[in-house]
Each structure stands twice: as structure tokens, then as C-alpha cells.
């Protein structure tokens, strides 16, 4: 190359000595900080929730026996039976899963095994829109659409605020999540396995249900677990439609308050720091956090192991 200028000739010279690039180091340090910040967030959650929850459990009036052994929750007057809230969480989550698991799984099978690409391009967005609707809107839907329908079916047996309506709508809300996770699991099953079944004269349904589905079972299990974790943590639907006021009951026609619904209602009002009402909310939140953490960890483990098997 014939570069004439002096600068150009100078450019050719080189020095392999290590250079200290200060901006490069600063940038790397800040990126590292951004990366590690998420750890601090987790630590902050555990610390702050744990600290207040400890204050709650250290209250001489609160005993583990009362907390786990009784069924009335009203910290203001010395009732600390967490089951009053847990029961409603269990009922609504159970109803939600009864709805969302079969429906989500069936739609996943249809989308991954049957649907033409054209049908998919219409059906997938429907599920995506469902997944993108804010939960408070689902709450409106539960209270002002589903509940009146239930009322017209069951009459006075069912209360205006009831766990059934909240649970059903929560099921619809979680359906897209189950569907998309299950679909990922189904499409990860290798083609060769399907072809093996077809080559033995299996019909499409037999292949889907007896070969593909069992092979994808762990991925579907992961979807189920994430679904449960979503249901347990869901707040707005139950806050709007399931009722306010702790109530130990497993009757879905009755009004009852879930753990999340309770936090939303109490914290929305006037709340003084350090009161037993305040610290008790953190105890509930801590339970929620630990529960969903464990569920998410399990499902991630399942997904990772599942992925390793087929990749």
C-alpha cells in the first residue's frame, strides 16, 4: 500500500505493550455493577421482608401455634391464624389450575401438532392478547360479567363476591402461559420420535397423546408449576372479585380473601409503620416470596434438564 502522508506511516508502527484503557475499565465496571444489581434486589427483598416479618413473629402475642393452628386472621385484635388467608389462596389457585391446565394443554397440542401455519398466525395472537390484558381488567370482567352469570345459574347460593368467579377468570388469565410453555415443550420433542410412531401406523392423535405428550411431560410439569406460582401471586382479580375480609372456608361460592388480596386491601388504607398490621403484611409477603421462589426454581430445574435431554 502506498500511503504517502507522515501520519499514515506512523500508523504502521506498533507497540505490543499492554495499554491501560481507562474508559474500557470504567465501562466494564459499570456493566458488572448493572449485572450484579439483580442480586442486590433479591437481597433487598429478603432483607426488608425478612426484617419486618421477624418483627411480626417476635411479637410476644404471635406464636407459631396460633399462626399455623388457628383459622381467624385479624392481627388488630390478636387473631393470627394464617389459614384464613391461605384457604382462599388455595381455593382460587386450585380452580384456576383446573381451568387453565387442561385448556392450556389442549390448545398447545392443537397449535403444535394440528394447526396449519395460517391457523397459527390467527390463534397465537389471540392467546398473546389474552396474556397482555392487565389483571385489573380481568377483575372487572370477573365481577361484572362472570359473577352475574354465576348468579343467574346458582341464584342465592352464591355470594356477590365469591372465589369461584375469581378462580375461573384467573384460569383464563393463566391459560396463555400454560399454553405457550407447553407448546415449547411439545415442539422440543424431536421429529424422529413422531415419525417413528407414524411409521408404526399410529394416527395423529395416538402419536400426540401417547408418544409426544409423555416425552414432553416434564416440560408440561414445569408449565404447571409456573402456572401455580402465577395463581398464588395474582392479586387484582381476587382483590376485585373474591371478596374482602379473611374467611376460612373451602366453599368456592363464598367470599374470602387471599393472601395477596389481603395485602392489597390493608396496604391501600392508612397504615402506620411498626404496627402489627404493617409487619403482618410483610410476613405474608415473605411467605408468598418464598413459595413462588421455590416453585420457580423447581420449574427452571425441570426445564433445564428437559432441554439437555433433547439438545
Amino acid at each position: 500500500m502506498n500511503l504517502k502522508s507522515a501520519e499514515a506511516r506512523k500508523f504502521r508502527q506498533f507497540d505490543l505493550k499492554k495499554k491501560f484503557r481507562i474508559s474500557e475499565s470504567i465501562i466494564q465496571a459499570s456493566l458488572f455493577f448493572a449485572g450484579i444489581l439483580s442480586i442486590f434486589i433479591t437481597i433487598a427483598i429478603v432483607y426488608e421482608l425478612g426484617k419486618e416479618a421477624m418483627l411480626f413473629f417476635n411479637d410476644p402475642d404471635v406464636t407459631l401455634g396460633k399462626f399455623l393452628g388457628t383459622t381467624k386472621w385479624q392481627p388488630g385484635i390478636g387473631q393470627y391464624g394464617i389459614w384464613a388467608l391461605v384457604s382462599a389462596t388455595l381455593v382460587t389457585s386450585f380452580i384456576a389450575m383446573v381451568i387453565s391446565l387442561p385448556l392450556g394443554l389442549a390448545s398447545a397440542i392443537y397449535l403444535s401438532e394440528y394447526a396449519s401455519s395460517k391457523a397459527r398466525s390467527i390463534l397465537k395472537p389471540v392467546l398473546e392478547i389474552l396474556a397482555g390484558i392487565p389483571t385489573v381488567v380481568y377483575g372487572y370482567f370477573a365481577l361484572l360479567f362472570v359473577t352475574p352469570i354465576l348468579k343467574s345459574i346458582f341464584g342465592d347460593q352464591i355470594q356477590v363476591y365469591n372465589m369461584l368467579s375469581a378462580g375461573l377468570v384467573m384460569g383464563i388469565m393463566i391459560l396463555p402461559l400454560i399454553s405457550s410453555m407447553s407448546e415449547d415443550a411439545l415442539s422440543a420433542v424431536p421429529r424422529s420420535l413422531r415419525e417413528a410412531a407414524y411409521a408404526m401406523g399410529a394416527t395423529k392423535v395416538e402419536t400426540s397423546l401417547q408418544v409426544v405428550l409423555p416425552a414432553a411431560l416434564s416440560g408440561i410439569g414445569a408449565a404447571l408449576i409456573v402456572g401455580i406460582s402465577r395463581a398464588v401471586g395474582e392479586t387484582m382479580i381476587v382483590a376485585v372479585a373474591a371478596g374482602s375480609g379473611p374467611n376460612f372456608t373451602f366453599d368456592p361460592f363464598k367470599a374470602a380473601e387471599t393472601m395477596t388480596g389481603h395485602i392489597a386491601r390493608i396496604s391501600g388504607g392508612d397504615l402506620s409503620y411498626n404496627s402489627i398490621d404493617y409487619t403482618s403484611l410483610f410476613a405474608i409477603a415473605m411467605m408468598l416470596f418464598l413459595l413462588t421462589l421455590v416453585l420457580n426454581l423447581i420449574s427452571q430445574q425441570i426445564v433445564n434438564r428437559f432441554r439437555e435431554r433433547y439438545e
Binding site: 427483598i45 426488608e48 406460582s229 409477603a285 416470596f289
Partner: peptide, 18 residues
Amino acid sequence: NNLSGVPSIVYGMLGLAV
């Protein structure tokens, strides 16, 4: 990955405390 699955109300409690 776990943080993305934490219920939003728990973030609310974190925000309230911090």
C-alpha cells in the same frame, strides 16, 4: 429468571419498605 417470576405485589412491598 427467578425475579421475573416474583409476584408483583411482593415488589410493591419492597417499594413500600425501601
